[in-house]
């Protein structure tokens, strides 16, 4: 049997240059790794690997700097937008992104994200909402759903005691300096593709100097949700999306041409169906 030369094959799938050739430490079925891959593909497609600086959070993604093949650093819990501001302001021609969980961005780091948005920093924020503090073993986050059982809300989140889940994309979308604010999910292939398109737009917004861009991504945490990998994806669809409708919350006029699609119609509750094909 004559061996077939590798050149005879088309490469249809490979590791992006923007990801390092290592195994991640994420739990099986966790979508943090998948979101990393989407970012890696986008960095490759935009040709910005040598120009990009990653600011990792405190959370399960604390080692993100080991997985992205770019210059990287690691911020104190919640402070990534401030640290990224310091970097971007002194080297404004580089691409700087933060990767933050919901404890990191929506609890301890609310001040930093709100004011980075307020200043219209040219930063890209990938905000991974998995409705709990994954890294510390599944405590309640501001994004934990009403009634959701976590290790620090063992009887379910009591909204009378601690309030309703916080909708971050909606909140940030009210700030003029945030010019591209969307929520996506990675629970199935169609939505993974939409998430990637949004991440790409978010980086392009930064490269065009149009202000802060944030993609909130609904992400699974099968370990702390005590679910199977696909059960967790189903929970995103059934439980999270009704509370966190997917959609475009702010697309500034200047950003519109980058998206090449019409604005979603949120009069229909911002459900998935209102987001046009990308």
């Amino acid at each position: 049997m004559t061996p077939i030369a590798l050149a005879d094959y088309d490469v249809v799938y490979r590791r992006p240059d923007a990801l390092t050739d290592v195994q991640t430490h994420y739990c099986p079925g966790c979508t943090h790794g998948l979101i990393h891959r989407l970012i890696g593909e986008v960095i490759d497609e935009l040709g910005i690997r040598e120009n990009t600086i990653c600011v990792a959070p405190v959370g399960c993604a604390v080692f993100a700097y080991n997985y992205f093949n770019v210059d990287g650093c690691e911020a104190p819990h919640g402070r990534a937008p401030a640290m990224a501001t310091g970097i971007k302001r002194v080297i404004p021609d580089r691409v700087v992104f933060t990767y933050q969980g919901d404890g990191d961005l929506a609890a301890i780091g609310t001040n930093e994200i709100i004011h980075a948005a307020g200043r219209g920093e040219d930063l890209t924020v990938i905000f991974v909402n998995n409705a709990n503090y994954g890294m510390t073993g599944g405590q309640m986050a501001p994004t934990t759903l009403a009634g959701q059982v976590t290790t620090s809300s063992p009887y379910g989140r009591d909204v009378d005691l601690v309030g309703m889940p916080m909708r971050v994309a909606e909140l940030i979308s009210t700030i003029p300096g945030a010019s591209y604010v969307v929520r996506r999910s990675v629970h199935n292939v169609a939505n993974i593709n939409k998430t990637k398109a949004a991440i790409k737009t978010a980086f392009q917004v930064q490269m065009a100097g149009l202000g802060l861009s944030m993609v909130e991504v609904l992400s699974s945490c099968p370990t702390n949700w005590h679910m199977s990998a696909d059960g967790a994806l189903k929970w995103i669809e059934d439980a999270m999306i009704p509370v966190y409708p997917l959609g475009d919350y702010r697309v500034a006029d200047a950003v519109e041409p980058l998206t090449k699609r019409r604005r979603p119609d949120r009069s229909q509750n911002g459900s998935l169906a209102t987001i046009p094909e990308e």
């Binding site: 600011v55 640290m83 501001t85 310091g86 970097i87 971007k88 001040n111 004011h115």
Partner: peptide, 18 residues
């Protein structure tokens, strides 16, 4: 001008890393 000393010191941290 940062929004707090917490933010200011982390901006310093970022700029120092650069």
């Amino acid at each position: 001008q940062a929004e707090s000393e917490l933010a200011a010191v982390n901006m310093v941290y970022g700029a120092a890393c650069a």
